[in-house]
Amino acid sequence: IGSLMYASIFGNVSAIIQRLYSGTARYHTQMLRVREFIRFHQIPNPLRQRLEEYFQHAWSYTNGIDMNAVLKGFPECLQADICLHLNRSLLQHCKPFRGATKGCLRALAMKFKTTHAPPGDTLVHAGDLLTALYFISRGSIEILRGDVVVAILGKNDIFGEPLNLYARPGKSNGDVRALTYCDLHKIHRDDLLEVLDMYPEFSDHFWSSLEITFNLRDTNMIPGSPGSTELEGGFSRQRKRKLSFRRRTDKDTEQPGEVSALGPGRAGAGPSSRGRPGGPWGESPSSGPSSPESSEDEGPGRSSSPLRLVPFSSPRPPGEPPGGEPLMEDCEKSSDTCNPLSGAFSGVSNIFSFWGDSRGRQYQELPRCPAPTPSLLNIPLSSPGRRPRGDVESRLDALQRQLNRLETRLSADMATVLQLLQRQMTLVPPAYSAVTTPGPGPTSTSPLLPVSPLPTLTLDSLSQVSQFMACEELPPGAPELPQEGPTRRLSLPGQLGALTSQPLHRHGSDPG
């Protein structure tokens, strides 16, 4: 009997000691992992102490058991019943959930998450997105703005933001810190809205009876308010094209079509300037034949640059190039080494500058006005007194259609001029006259002087055409309008007829 009692007592005591040691061994194993994590990542002392304290409290609170892992091991129907039991206190005593059906309560219970916070733990920081609604079931918390405590909340209090009033989550206007050990039930806004969409009859009752104890939403960050730039940057990543407008005076608003859609830094370009900076079609017209890549860069430059609305530039004389043409100036200075066709295309550029300027006046029909002061630039669209967005969009579309028509007509005119030049060069190729044979009589004449090349004649003739079109064909006081194609086609051969009437002889060394 004594040996039996000794064996039973010894066996029970050893089993008890073994169970104690097993729990202690698990605790030390998990604690060792936490300390190894702290050492590996070199976490500083204040945060390291918070980690160790939280682990110790969580171990004593749950005995080292992962409740979520245990809950996920059950089937979904059983999980709903378990969640309904775990959140029964909240669902029974909170006013917004009263009167809900059994199915609605089960769906809500599945969406709730339980959070346990030790003292000093910050649940929400200032500036964080308010993605959830919090219900306090135990403990107390404090809300701070800077170093000032603005509120202390306790059991059955609710904090967050009214989700039904805002389409997008706002930002917190303060820090939420736990004063004691707290148990909180939180539900994400997407989950709550999903359940309320499934039960629309409960939705009206819920929003009407929901009383948020403390609204954390920062009202200064609401979209459309003066301080909402940061919020707009976070939620409006896919922005449309940006529009900046110059201020319109009362006198300017009476004149229709007073602005032109141009790229940034293009205030001095012609009315047909689009795409790359520098001139019509993204580059100076005089350098068009020598740089074919300008047409390839036109599309990307047009689509990537934001639109700006600026006044037209001052008018340019008909014979003056659009500006920024070092290529043609070098050719004029060193005409001995340049291609003979460069002079002809220089005359073509003069005609283009004249036609572009006159067509700009035809479509816009307003006098040039000086540029406004820099303080009046970049007025935002949302400022008071601005035109409605639809009106601005319609004006932009009208300007775009005008620019497209202008570009089409300029292309047709350019093709006409090039065809005339090619026809003239085919009839009378460039050549130098040879020395004529002296006559049989004693009164022999001296050799004839060489005839100037055709490109120079073409430049003079085209300059005469531009001056003739600019000065004589337009009646005084009438708006400057571009001439039609047949009129220009008839004027060019008439001007060139006198020049080509002389018999030109080919030089023996000319390969053409």
Score class of each variant (00 low, 15 high):
T500Q: 14
Q419H: 14
L144G: 07
D128L: 02
M328T: 12
V176P: 02
L406E: 01
G263P: 08
D191N: 03
P388C: 06
G439W: 13
Q400D: 13
G270A: 11
S244C: 10
L449M: 13
Q362H: 13
L216G: 03
S463W: 10
L410D: 04
G512A: 12
I222H: 09
P429E: 08
M221N: 11
S140E: 09
L449H: 15
L144N: 07
F312N: 14
N173M: 14
K333D: 11
P340R: 13
P300E: 07
K251D: 13
V428T: 08
Q495W: 11
G439H: 12
L196R: 02
A434Y: 10
R405N: 01
S383K: 05
G288R: 11
R302P: 13
G146M: 08
P200H: 05
Q255V: 07
L410P: 04
E332M: 05
V176M: 01
R423P: 08
L418K: 15
S305C: 07
G270V: 13
G477Y: 05
L130I: 13
P317Q: 09
G233S: 09
L427A: 11
S313K: 08
R145I: 03
G324L: 10
A478G: 10
F345A: 12
P388S: 12
L309A: 08
L418H: 09
P370C: 12
I379Q: 13
H507R: 05
R189Q: 04
E142G: 08
R361A: 08
R368I: 15
D252G: 09
S346Q: 14
N173C: 12
K186H: 13
L492W: 08
E393K: 06
F468N: 11
D147Q: 08
Q464G: 11
S140G: 04
D252H: 07
T458N: 10
T213V: 04
R389E: 11
L179G: 06
L420F: 06
P482D: 10
G497S: 12
V417D: 08
P285W: 15
F159I: 09
A470V: 13
N339W: 08
G356D: 10
R359S: 09
I152M: 07
P200K: 04
T445Y: 14
E201F: 02
P450R: 10
F468T: 07
Q422P: 06
D147V: 03
V451R: 06
S305L: 14
P162S: 06
S383T: 05
H185T: 06
G234C: 12
S501E: 07
S466V: 08
S342R: 10
P322W: 12
R308H: 13
L427P: 04
S353P: 10
S137L: 04
S394I: 13
L457V: 10
R168Y: 08
L165C: 13
L184A: 04
S303C: 07
D336M: 13
V195P: 01
S304P: 08
D397C: 15
K155P: 10
S463R: 13
A415R: 08
L179K: 09
H188E: 11
S346A: 08
T373D: 07
Q362A: 12
N220L: 08
G360P: 15
M328E: 09
G477I: 13
L262A: 12
Q464E: 15
Q419N: 05
S394A: 13
T373S: 10
L341Q: 14
E298I: 10
E332H: 10
S208N: 15
T131F: 14
R247Y: 09
L474R: 05
G265T: 11
F202Y: 10
G270H: 05
P162R: 10
R386G: 09
T416I: 11
P384A: 10
R241D: 13
G257A: 10
G263F: 08
N339H: 14
R389L: 06
G323N: 13
H185S: 08
T213P: 02
K155V: 10
P280I: 14
P388L: 08
S284L: 05
H188A: 11
P162H: 08
G324Q: 15
L366R: 07
S444K: 06
R423M: 05
R241T: 11
S272C: 05
P256Y: 15
Q424N: 11
R145Q: 09
L133A: 01
S349Y: 05
S463H: 14
C338M: 08
S349L: 04
F354Q: 07
Y181Q: 06
L492N: 13
I143H: 01
M425G: 09
G224L: 09
D357C: 04
K251V: 11
E472C: 12
P493A: 05
L496H: 11
P482V: 09
I222C: 10
R389P: 05
T445V: 09
V465Y: 04
F352T: 12
K333V: 12
E298H: 04
S290R: 12
S411R: 11
D157Y: 01
S294A: 15
P256K: 08
I212H: 01
V259W: 08
V149M: 09
H205K: 11
D250Q: 06
L163D: 03
R368S: 10
G356A: 08
E194Y: 06
P256E: 12
P482Q: 07
L474Y: 15
Y166G: 11
S313R: 10
N215A: 04
C182N: 01
M221L: 15
Y166V: 07
P318C: 15
Q255G: 10
L243W: 14
D330T: 10
S452R: 10
M328P: 08
L243I: 12
L163T: 12
E480C: 09
